[in-house]
């Protein structure tokens, strides 16, 4: 399984990826997860590659071979769309966060309909998931990532009880309850996968 997770620095891409990687480990699989820290995380574009199988070599996913892309923001969904396999699924938050050069008027904003069209053209199987809005309704925008996880879980084969076990292991104790709620809310956001 090849999963690309992308978003904007601060959105919780790294924790999300940690959880997926630990799920795979707990399921007894070989797993590699790769991301970049440092300067890139200061509000920049953040991506993580997760691969799991009985044996994994490259920590990086090749273009056109991602089974799933999880995007926490729409521009980032388009930025990494070339990783998607022809049969792959894009799960994305329709949220938009404009890059600073757009905010301050140096670069023109990409119109919503154009962005939607370009995403649609390259991702026939796609599911918008309003994770950020749901997280805000739950009272904490920071749980956007676990809402997303709830939605993405529909496409993964891990047993349900494993999720809560891994969330409890990786999230700070005072936020566990909130994150479990967010996970439950996320799992309601998309229909079960077509068979």
């Amino acid at each position: 399984m090849n999963i690309i997770v992308c978003g904007v620095g601060g959105q919780g891409v790294i924790l999300f990826s940690d959880i997926i990687a630990h799920l795979a480990l707990a399921a007894g699989l070989d797993v590699k997860k790769s991301e970049v820290h440092g300067m890139a995380q200061r509000g920049g574009s953040v991506t993580s590659h997760i691969r799991y199988a009985p044996r994994v070599h490259s920590p990086l996913i090749e273009d056109g071979t991602a089974d799933i892309i999880v995007a926490f923001e729409q521009l980032e969904a388009l930025r990494y769309i070339h990783f998607l396999a022809p049969s792959g699924v894009l799960i994305y938050d329709p949220l938009r966060i404009e890059p600073l050069p757009v905010q301050i008027g140096l670069v023109e904003k990409m119109p919503d309909d154009l962005l939607n069209k370009r995403i649609a053209a390259r991702a026939p199987r796609r599911y918008p998931v309003e994770a950020f809005a749901t997280a805000c309704n739950l009272g904490n925008p920071r749980v956007q990532n676990t809402v997303m996880l709830g939605a993405v879980a529909r496409f993964l084969e891990f047993p349900v009880n494993l999720y809560s076990r891994v969330i409890k292991a990786l999230v700070k104790p005072q936020f566990i309850e909130q994150n479990l709620q967010a996970f439950a809310a996320g799992s309601q956001l998309i229909p079960p996968p077509e068979t």
Binding site: G44, L100, V107
Partner: peptide, 17 residues
């Protein structure tokens, strides 16, 4: 042949917080 990245996406350089 592998799929090419999309072009003309506004860059998202890191920024002060």
């Amino acid at each position: 042949p592998r799929p090419a990245p999309e072009d003309d996406i506004p860059n998202r350089p890191p920024a002060l917080c």
